[in-house]
Amino acid sequence: MSLNNTQIKNLKPTQKAIDSKRPDKHSDGQGLQLWVRYTGVKSWISAYRWQGKQQTLTIGTYPVMSLQSARQRNLEIKRLIVDGINPKDDKKKHEQKMTDQRLSIR
């Protein structure tokens, strides 16, 4: 079942998440999940398989990243996989590029 904005806004960590310090996981479909941590932080996670192994990639936090943006980013991740690119490697490369740009501005 797909998530909607009203559901997401109303999500709170369950007692189980608070006691175990493990996030509650809510699926939107196509590997997109919203993890509600015991602190109340809501993180968008893309779950996928790379070379036969289950992987997860944090793509943002709610409400900074909207449901629509998270779905779009999840599709981009799926396209990378189809193109033979590991999404984690792509994220690291992008982060390094951003760091290099910040340093060159100074």
Rank of each mutant, 00 (worst) to 15 (best):
T61L: 06
N4I: 12
Q72H: 14
L67T: 05
E76Q: 09
W35H: 15
N86C: 14
L3K: 09
K9Q: 06
R102C: 00
L11K: 11
Q55H: 15
G52E: 13
L80P: 04
S69M: 14
Q101S: 02
D19W: 10
P87H: 13
R71P: 05
E76M: 13
N5P: 01
L80V: 01
Q55S: 12
I18T: 00
D90H: 12
R22D: 00
V82I: 13
S104M: 13
L103Y: 14
G60Y: 11
R71F: 04
M1Q: 06
G31L: 08
K91L: 07
K42F: 02
M65H: 07
E95H: 01
Y62N: 07
L75D: 09
K12W: 03
D90P: 03
Q101N: 03
S69D: 14
K25A: 00
G29Q: 12
L3P: 04
Y48Q: 10
K88N: 11
M98V: 10
Q7W: 02
R22H: 03
L80D: 03
D19G: 02
A17I: 14
I85E: 11
R49E: 05
K88C: 15
R79S: 12
G52T: 14
G31C: 03
G40N: 04
T99N: 14
Q101K: 13
Q7H: 02
W50E: 05
G52R: 13
I18N: 01
Q72A: 14
P23M: 12
K53F: 08
H26M: 02
N4L: 12
Q101G: 01
S66I: 15
K12E: 05
M65N: 05
K91H: 05
K12M: 04
S2Q: 07
L103F: 02
I77C: 03
W44C: 03
S43W: 04
K16F: 04
Q68D: 09
S20F: 03
K21Q: 02
L75A: 07
P63L: 13
S20Y: 07
Y48W: 08
L11H: 01
D90E: 11
Q68L: 07
T99M: 15
Q15A: 07
A17F: 08
K78A: 09
